[in-house]
Design a protein around this nucleic acid. Structure first.
Lengths: 119, 119
DNA sequence: CCGTATCCGATCCGATACTG
DNA sequence: CAGTATCGGATCGGATACGG
């Protein structure tokens, strides 16, 4: 089975892939895999993320059904994010890809140096 | 094992993930999985790709050691791209992710409609 | 605490033109 | 055939300010 059956930018798989392969989603899901967490808790775990970027990322994950957002009406307001069962099913494939990157980092790096020295 | 050990934008895995999770790489690798192919051959298989985008994508894949580029000095010139052994090892994790997207497309779509109707 | 709104520079991306 | 070069619009992303 090919990775994308239609080799098309509108391949249904690609439209979903784009939503989860972005800059922060993978790390947010990984953080939430350890349990529910509040906004600033997540933010503290992701060094370098801005509030805007994290908000957008969380919204997208929520819209795609991978996490839930629960407002706790205390003062000041608290918002807890939690992985859904669907979100949990995404972690194994992600981890497989993560394992590949870690296993092949050095080989890729060698290829890059070879390429860069050629040009 | 977490998806990203450092939860950091500079996590070495992320820096590599960005290179392969882009708009076209997955499809190019999938096309080349069927055998070596020339530039315009690949282009014909990827509906919607521009020459510029494909060139950039092929360069990046070549630089990362996932494909090779071979110039065949005929007239007019021919250039053949071929998957490397390293590139081949990337396909199983990719296919796992592809399988997940196909398996969960409808559930994600339902979540999106629910979210959109809430707001 | 958890956002939204706005501005602004950097970057991407397609279209087009041109070359060996 | 397989690129490179260039340009302008669109989009992204950070910084900042403000609000419930």
């Amino acid at each position: 089975m090919p990775v994308c059956q239609q080799f098309d930018v509108n391949c249904p798989s690609r439209l979903l892939f784009d939503q989860i392969a972005d800059k922060w989603s993978m790390m947010v899901l990984s953080v939430l895999d350890t349990g529910p967490m509040r906004f600033n808790g997540i933010k503290r775990h992701l060094e370098g993320v801005t509030q805007k970027a994290l908000t957008q990322c969380l919204r997208r994950l929520e819209r795609n059904g991978l996490i839930t957002r629960r407002v706790i009406p205390v003062s000041p307001i608290a918002v807890e994010y939690e992985m859904t069962p669907l979100g949990r099913t995404l972690l194994p494939p992600f981890k497989a890809l993560y394992a590949w990157t870690m296993a092949n980092l050095s080989e890729v790096d060698a290829a890059r140096r070879a390429f860069d020295s050629r040009s």
